[in-house]
Each structure stands twice: as C-alpha cells, then as structure tokens.
Design a protein around this nucleic acid. Sequence first.
DNA 1: CGTGGGTTTGAGTAAGGTCAAAGTTAGTGG
DNA 2: CCACTAACTTTGACCTTACTCAAACCCACG
Lengths: 247, 247
Amino acid sequence: MNRPDILSSGEPEIDAITAQCFVRFEEAFGTRGFAWDVQAQIMSLGKAVEIGKGQSATIFSDEDSLVFLAEGACKLVAWAALDRAQVLSFHFAGDLVSVPARAEHEYGLIALTPSQILSFPTRRFLQAVNEESKLLVELHRRTDAALAECRNDSVGLGRKTAQERVARLLMQMAGRIGVASDNEVLIELPMSRGDIADSLGLTIETVSRQFGELRDAGLIETGGRSGVRVLDPEALLQRAGPTGPHA
Amino acid sequence: MNRPDILSSGEPEIDAITAQCFVRFEEAFGTRGFAWDVQAQIMSLGKAVEIGKGQSATIFSDEDSLVFLAEGACKLVAWAALDRAQVLSFHFAGDLVSVPARAEHEYGLIALTPSQILSFPTRRFLQAVNEESKLLVELHRRTDAALAECRNDSVGLGRKTAQERVARLLMQMAGRIGVASDNEVLIELPMSRGDIADSLGLTIETVSRQFGELRDAGLIETGGRSGVRVLDPEALLQRAGPTGPHA
DNA sequence: CGTGGGTTTGAGTAAGGTCAAAGTTAGTGG
DNA sequence: CCACTAACTTTGACCTTACTCAAACCCACG
C-alpha cells in the first residue's frame, strides 16, 4: 500500500488514513487547543498506517513506541520463545498502547481485524508534549490504568483455573465489545481460540473444552467461530471466580 | 540517625520519619527546585509512616495511592480470594508504587522488613504537580517501566515452567539486591517461600522443590531461610528459559 | 462445492497441586 | 546463654488439572 508524503512542498498533502487517525487522536486527547508548534511536532512524529489481519504494527524497531489504535482490533504479544507466545492484552479503537522496543522479550502489536494505527516514538513524543501537562496527566492516567489491568490479569494467570480464566475473558469482552439485549449479551470475538489460549496461559484444546463446558451448562451459546451469546451473565460471572477477599 | 527539622522553627514540627522520607523523595524526584507552593502542597499531601514486618501500608482506603518506599522492602499483593493471594511485585528503597484503592481485587502493600513509606492520594497529587511537567514525565516513565515489568512477569506466569519461574526470580533478585563477588552472587531474600510462591503462581512446596533441584544441580547454595549464594549465574540464567524468539 | 485453517473431541501423560509428616530456623523468655 | 516453641521449610506419597498427541469435524473462503 503506497502512501504519499505526509509533508510536501506548498500545502502539506495528507492521505485519508493519516487524516482520520489524527482526527481520532485529537478527539481522544484534546490536542486541538495546543500551541501550534507542539501540534506540528506531534504530527511530524506520528506515522499513520493501515494494517491487515495478522500484520504486525511495529514501526520504530529500536525505540519504544506509543501506538494509538484509531480503528480496528489488535493484540499485544510477547514471545517467551518462538513457539511460546503470550498475548498480553487485546485492544480496540481509541486505545493507546505502550509497546517496548525490546525488553526481556520481543513484543509485537498485531492486527486481529484490519486496523488503522498511529505510532509515535515515545521518547521524542514526551519531549514534544513536555509543556502540555494536561496531556501528560492523561498519559499517566492511561498508563496507570493499563498497569492496573495488567495486574488484574496477573491474578488470573497465577491463581485461577482454566474455567475461571475463560469465563473472566468472556465477561471482559462482553463489557468491552458486547451488545446487550435483555439480560443477554452478544459478542463477536475478533480473536481466535489460539489468541485466547495465548492470552490466558492455556492451550487451544483447553480453551475449546471450557467453551464446551460453558455451552453444556447453558451459560453461553456459540455461533460459528466468533459468535458468542452470553445467556446468563450472572452465572458466567460466578464461574469467573471470586473477585476479592470479602469472605 | 536523627535529622533536624527541614523547615525552620516557627513552622509545624516534623517528626524524624517524615523528614527522612521527604529528603529521600526529593533526592529521587528532584522536587527541590519546585515552586514554593507546590512543594508545600506535596508536603501536606504526603503521609509518612514506619511499618513493621507483615504490616499493611494502605493509608488512603477509598482512593488510589502513590506510595514512595523510602526504606525497607515490601510486597504488593492482590487477593483473588481469602486464600488465594497473588504477589504482584516486590519493592525496595527508592521505588514508587501505584496502589489501586480497589479494582477487581483488593490490594495491599505489605512490609517484608521494617519500612518507611510516604503515601500520596494519587488524584490530588497529580493536581498539585500539574504544572511541574518534569515530575509528570518522570512519573510516566516509572509507571511505564512498571507496566513493562508487569508484562514481562505475565509471560512468566503464562508460559514458563516452575523451574524457569524460580530461576528467573532468583536472577531478578540477584540483580536487584544481590552482592556480587567474583562470578558469584550473594542474596539475602527478604521474602518467604510463601511470598515467592504467591508471586510466581506456584505453591510453597513446588518452590521448595525447585530450590532443592537447583541446589542439587550445584547452581545455588542456601544458607538458613533467606540466604542464597548463586554459584553459577550463567547456568541459572539458562534455566530461567529463553528470553525471546531468536531461534 | 471443495479445500484448508481453525475448532472440537478423545485418550494418555506429566507437571504441579494437595495432604501429611518430619525437620529447621529464628525468635522468646527463663 | 540456653532451652523452648511457633512458624517456616523440606520431603514424601498420591491426585488432579491441564498438556500432548492424534484424529475427526466444520466453518469460511475461494
């Protein structure tokens, strides 16, 4: 997919993807009111691209990146080894994802559905917005929320049974991308069983068996590969296990 | 070890713990150069306390807190249930810990050794330092690092064997609090086998057995409950498992 | 309609959990 | 300073859960 220069002589030509990504970004972070030069810096740092299903979104290979997901759904993956992937999180439109260049493991942000993303090199981005403390506070808020989320997931990975993990993921997805209709929730899962397994620290087979058990128990119905109808959210939440030390 | 008041006479009396905590905090975050009123606000928001082994450090019960660990060692714990604790991280002097008031699980910061901590209510702290973008950037940097760390741990929880988990933890502790001496590292573990088990998603017995295996293999020696001598760091790192997809 | 990747199901296995008991360690008080 | 004790740790036997390997199945795509 070719992209025309986003900066060019005369009036800057901007392609549709770039334009749309920045509009969404401005909406999410309220950068519209920023000083002119800060806005210009942000625009020159951000690279907008469209990526197809299964494609990786790593842009800045030797630098930490900050990726804004304008449209679509992605998974953040770390590899413990070539054959041991761990899905760290699923992301949807509006999310800001912090992607390390390379830490103890190699990371990748991979599209589950065709997605539009806007990538910034973290360090230079922070320098650019250095004086816009509102954005810094929002950035901290989101990172802190991601940390809290990651910690919640840690509890799941360390201390929950296969069924509790699957039930919890379904409830999370119900809340994130589910469509409610009188005490039922319809979910269209953008990720495969393999992705779910990799995110829960299980195998494909175990995930499948848990789907089966939940179906046999009458808590969910499945339609095709990606359709899930939660028939009894209450009971499903029960199976996700306890959520605190309250008794 | 006593320190005189850092605010001159006529001002409110400040106890030794508070004084020492703030001195350490200033050193770590360079708040010395801040505007007078910002410094005053920070000081009025921070509660310094000394907590003994096993004591919990939760100060602001219904608000997210930001806890600076001035001295000692602590564990951050979440409870999946009364009998299912997950240790999310271990912390040492100089660390800043983000403690949610209450999310999906209940959290607690608990002292492993007598510790001095300085707690801030996150929201009001952010308001106070709103204009000091250097501190905001540093805050973001630390939170982002904690997130990266949490994600690395997720890989461990989801995709590593018991032995890999234990070996990795020992290497982490070697790097964090170990004392090196010609190709050996001495570690004085501040946490119990139970804490280690809870942080790795294992049982006490399994952790103990892995210590045994590593000892039998000649990679480590143990002395008493807390002493560990890493005889062969190379080999121990090997047992921690692969660290990326590089073949 | 095929075809191939994803999914489900089944049988056997292994890693780690559970239960129980013995052995240490590091305080505590005499 | 030593004996005592309670908590922590180690070890052993057995069991459960989830993994592995394998085959059948079924969507979704061309």
